[in-house]
Design a protein around this nucleic acid. Structure first.
Lengths: 182, 182
DNA sequence: AATGTCATGTAACTAGTTACATGATTTA
DNA sequence: TAAATCATGTAACTAGTTACATGACATT
């Protein structure tokens, strides 16, 4: 079975917090500034139905006494297991390289599902991977990168600065998470 | 007509430097670390054919005296015009927010097509947009962001640090580009 | 009565991924 | 001659985008 998309994991994470309707989920996408996922119905409803077909979530029986039907979804046991296993994956180098948004998504939900201690461990992994990437880029810039045109080199340096900022942030976040234990 | 994708613009930019075959383009994707676009044939060849259908590029008549056929593509006048117009677009705030990779792509080719002066103007626009985003995020963090859970706030701060790094890099790049004029 | 919002969904289309297919040429 | 590499392409599938459709309910 294929891997879930970030959107699908995001839905699992939000529904772990509390059951919600597709419409409510759309609205929360539109308001919160997290990684801005599209709030169009053409993405959310099909995603919810894919998760439903996999038995990762289910609609609460919620008989509206009359009229306007809304489906409130909640996680199934399998959905919760899938969410937990996603959050517990070790942070891979390639993940940080090509899916930084997904990594941050994991970070956010990690604390809510497992507590700040787990979030701290995750953020330390992020820092480690970021530092590996930094070494890679630095050695490339010292080696074959020498022959790049100025703008090409500058572009690589922009990436490098991004990873340095990530590593600094991760170290600081680890300290912030050392404190209270929710 | 629909907008070109970043991959298509990348192909236009590379073919502006010199005519090349699909195979050569794939290889350059695999070796250079720029934003790693996929080097799979299933993405490059269809993209080349889309550009060809639009008359943005054409195969050089290059009759191989025998055997192994390779198509060398080069830009048409329309292709060059499309590339230039893409590079000259002002840098919009939303572009920096959701397509930073595309912005860097523009930066790299801007110098090669128009010279370092233009690249410098582009990078100053990037700095300006980044600073606008920084102000946005800062005021959000001071306002409604106060009520976010710790990890949510930290995630936003990670984004903020990324934009700060971008703004710093852009200012430095602008200085670097003040020098020699190729 | 008309407009706006709540709420869910479908249809047509897009680019991209993976995997496969083909065949020529070079190298071992 | 067998294997690796050059070189181009197609087929099946994926999620996501945009635009449209539907209808109940609330507000003016």
């Amino acid at each position: 079975m294929r891997r879930l998309t970030n959107l699908e994991y995001l839905l699992l994470g939000l529904l772990h917090q509390s059951p919600a309707s597709g419409y409510a989920l759309r609205k929360s996408f539109a308001t919160t500034p997290l990684g801005h996922y599209s709030d169009s119905p053409g993405s959310i409803y099909p995603a919810l139905n894919r998760l439903r077909r996999r038995n990762l979530l289910q609609p609460l029986p919620h008989q509206p006494s009359s009229g306007r039907r809304t489906l409130l979804f909640s996680l199934t046991a399998r959905g919760l297991a899938e969410l937990r296993s996603w959050l517990q994956h070790p942070v891979a180098l390639e993940e940080v390289r090509q899916d930084a948004g997904g990594v941050m998504l994991r970070f956010v939900f990690c604390a809510q599902v497992f507590g700040q201690g787990s979030a701290r461990r995750l953020v330390l992994q992020i820092a480690a991977r970021a530092n590996e990437i930094i070494l890679d880029l630095e050695s490339y810039l010292r080696g074959p990168g020498k022959s790049l045109p100025l703008t090409g080199r500058l572009a690589l340096e922009q990436g490098l600065e991004g990873y340095r900022a990530l590593a600094r942030w991760a170290s600081r976040a680890a300290k912030d998470l050392k404190g209270s234990s929710t």
